[in-house]
């Protein structure tokens, strides 16, 4: 009798504790991820097949929104601008690397210099945007004044459709470079001094040392810098909103901004069209996300 009670099977939870506990810990995150990320993705895709003003009845239009996108010059401009952002924003990585190499030395007060270089990353994007739009002002701005010293005419960076996007990207590079720099500074701390020593004995120096010895060891830092920069480029919204509001005549819009304008801004009443733009942006991001996941996965397997 008594023995029977003693070997009574343990509770279900006790038996499966090791398998279940991780899921319990993951549950809140999974729940919120499903509700706030996965579900809205499918909802957006669903809305993109409707003509809906966000208030009244939604009307099924099939692929009409996408057909219209294909023929929409403003969409085309936004897409090209996204591409410009992707390409030029990546300049933050080499720039950050070189500043990091420059600052990676032991001089009195180096911490102060490092903090100063890191400073722009601490600023809000809104402040960065404002400062740069003053810097670019056509008459009073610092840039125009500097150009006039070397005899170049006044340049209205943000008012000129060909230059405005580059002007905003330059503003974005300022904090992004600081971010990449800090990533590389931590990476440089982990560079193996023995390998550097060995390379030096073999006669490597300068560029060769950098390219064959230092940079390969910075690979993890480069990967993270690449990820945050790509995501930063695709998320560019606040700077555009502050500096040009998408103008002049819509030439600095990117997909995220165009989506906001079409769906949610003062005159935007086209939820379906906005959702279609969001889906295109999502597909572009998916390419990068898939690549990131794949490279992380193969890295882990390689170990």
């Amino acid at each position: 009798m008594t023995t029977e009670t003693e070997i009574q099977p343990r509770s279900w939870y006790k038996r499966n504790e090791i398998a279940v506990t991780p899921w319990l810990f993951l549950a809140p995150a999974i729940l919120f991820f499903l509700v706030y990320v996965i579900f809205p993705i499918f909802q957006s895709i669903g809305i993109s097949f409707y003509d809906w003003d966000g208030l009244g009845e939604a009307r099924w239009v099939g692929l009409d929104n996408y057909v219209e996108l294909a023929d929409d010059s403003a969409f085309e401009v936004s897409l090209w601008n996204n591409l410009k952002w992707l390409v030029f924003y990546l300049l933050a990585i080499p720039a950050g690397l070189f500043i990091a190499l420059f600052l990676n030395q032991t001089v009195t007060g180096i911490r102060i210099y490092k903090s100063l270089f890191f400073f722009p990353f601490v600023l809000s994007q809104v402040v960065v945007g404002l400062v740069f739009s003053w810097f670019y002002l056509p008459n009073e701005g610092l840039l125009s004044n500097m150009l006039s010293y070397i005899g170049l005419g006044p340049l209205n960076v943000l008012g000129d459709p060909t230059w405005a996007t580059y002007g905003i990207i330059a503003a974005g590079l300022w904090p992004q470079t600081a971010y990449c720099m800090i990533l590389y500074l931590t990476g440089l701390n982990a560079v193996d001094p023995e390998q550097v020593e060995a390379a030096r004995l073999d006669g490597a120096k300068g560029w060769k040392m950098l390219w064959y010895v230092i940079i390969p060891q910075l690979k993890p830092a480069t990967f993270i810098a690449f990820v945050v920069t790509i995501i930063g480029a695709l998320r560019s919204f606040d700077l555009i909103s502050i500096m040009t509001n998408g103008g002049p005549f819509g030439q600095t819009r990117v997909l995220s901004f165009y989506m906001f304008e079409k769906a949610l801004s003062e005159y935007g009443f086209r939820m379906g069209y906005g959702a279609a733009i969001a889906v295109v942006l999502f597909l572009i991001m998916l390419v990068f996300i898939a690549y990131f996941l794949w490279s992380m996965w193969s890295e882990e397997r390689g170990r």
Binding site: G247, P248, F249, E261, E266, Y267, F269, R270
Partner: peptide
């Protein structure tokens, strides 16, 4: 209408 106005005013600026 809002949509027409948004596009048109952008055109005016251009």
């Amino acid at each position: 209408p809002a949509e027409m106005a948004a596009e048109a005013m952008q055109g005016f600026q251009e």
